[in-house]
Design a binder for these strands. Structure first.
Lengths: 239, 239
DNA sequence: GATTGTAATATGGTATACAATCTAAGTCAA
DNA sequence: TTGACTTAGATTGTATACCATATTACAATC
């Protein structure tokens, strides 16, 4: 009965570089933030579920101050919704908002793809290609968690080589809000074939420097993802 | 010890009667947030300036907890930058980021304008038209603060009628980060004529339902604004 | 069974304490 | 003067206790 939700993901080793002097001091708050965010996007808390401060204190092993600050952060990110005197809860996603988010991703990602097609070098292309390999591999193993991670890797490489870090931040934040849709989408039937295929098409267009084609491929990719999501959310709201 | 996960998640049965007290209780935190944000975007704190918690407590008349939570919020919004154990300061804007922000605004606003052209009704058009009148009037009085506010009003009406509230949130957040550039831009010479003229062009295209023209006008508008901003930021970094 | 009163709970907010860390001023040596 | 070292004060990070108020759960009542 004691739902001691494991807010303790695998302790990650800091990949301390060689001769790294400026080791940025990590505060407890940052750790708590990451864990709570991970717990939400990985669906350990369901949308609409109340987040009770004192329980979170216990589960995270930190004080109320820290929990409150972390909640303020996640609230601003759109992952948590707070009603005054009622407290925070995991943000719910309505169909309208989800649609807008998929539209925005299409807009942002296609623009990034177009720009990437104009400037990508061999190194950038290799990164994206590797990510695609990883995705195919993970799909074969039905390791959907890795699929999502590698997909992020693919797009991050694309946005970074297009020098669009601000846009990438926005996409990441949007992705957080639709994390449960993404999870369900990647694990839906036949997504293992169409998804990578469409991303391959994006990469192919970038490789030959065909910006418009890359943008179109992005829009295609997002359109199908958005379609699946729309069905999922309709099924959800039906229940 | 206490794991009562009841708390009625799906309560909230809003049987809104006419006697409904619609006024959501405002927390002290929200007030403090608005004031501090206003102080930053209105340039009462300069970029790079340290924000010392205890000073803010005094100035706002609230406790440290509230100030810290507010700072966490503004940090997530990108208006404040915090270095661990060194504290928060007003975020600085580099040329690269500013460029990206103007690009993003062009992308988002042109998409919204295109969508608006397809769906705007008389009421929407009236709102935008009124905003334009307000802008012209304020320019005549050199009341640049009102110019910015009315410009926001114009775009808000446009995004809302296009059903793009999420995109509008993003634009608003981006605008916060370039607030000082916007202030300087609107008050720069001859902006009082070109600015309203370009926006009039956007509205005109929306009015006749010409989506592509509306999008193009938006891009024009942002391009000139971005140009001015680029010069301003170059001058700034020179100093 | 619906309404109402009451107790338990959770939040919003304040104040305080204290260790870790940063900053700045001062000191001393070359 | 410059540079390195020291130290005192300022500031942040975190924890905790406390209170008032709003909300929720629950029992008593009609």
């Amino acid at each position: 009965m004691n739902k001691k939700i494991k807010l303790t993901p695998p302790a990650q080793k800091s990949k301390a570089g060689k001769l790294r002097i400026a080791e940025v001091p990590r505060t407890l708050r940052e750790l708590a933030l990451e864990r709570l965010r991970a717990a939400i996007v990985e669906f350990h808390f369901k949308p609409g579920q109340r987040l009770i401060e004192r329980d979170l204190c216990e589960q995270l092993g930190v004080s109320r101050s820290v929990v409150r600050e972390v909640i303020r952060h996640l609230e601003t990110e759109g992952l948590v919704h707070t009603i005054p005197h009622q407290g925070p809860s995991v943000a719910k996603l309505d169909a309208e908002t989800a649609t807008q988010i998929y539209e925005l991703r299409a807009l942002l990602e296609s623009a990034a793809a177009q720009a990437a097609a104009a400037v990508a070098n061999a190194n950038d292309l290799a990164k994206m290609s590797n990510a695609l390999d990883l995705i195919a591999d993970a799909y074969a193993r039905k390791d959907f968690h890795t699929v999502l991670g590698a997909t992020n890797g693919f797009y991050e490489a694309m946005f970074m080589c297009a020098h669009k870090s601000v846009a990438w931040d926005m996409v990441q934040r949007l992705n957080g809000r639709i994390s449960w849709l993404r999870s369900l989408t990647v694990s839906s039937v036949d997504r293992g074939s169409t998804g990578p295929m469409q991303m391959q098409k994006i990469l192919g267009a970038i490789k030959i420097g065909d910006g418009p084609a890359a943008a179109a491929a992005c829009r295609d990719h997002l359109a199908t993802a958005g379609e699946i999501a729309k069905r999922l959310i309709a099924a959800e709201e039906d229940a």
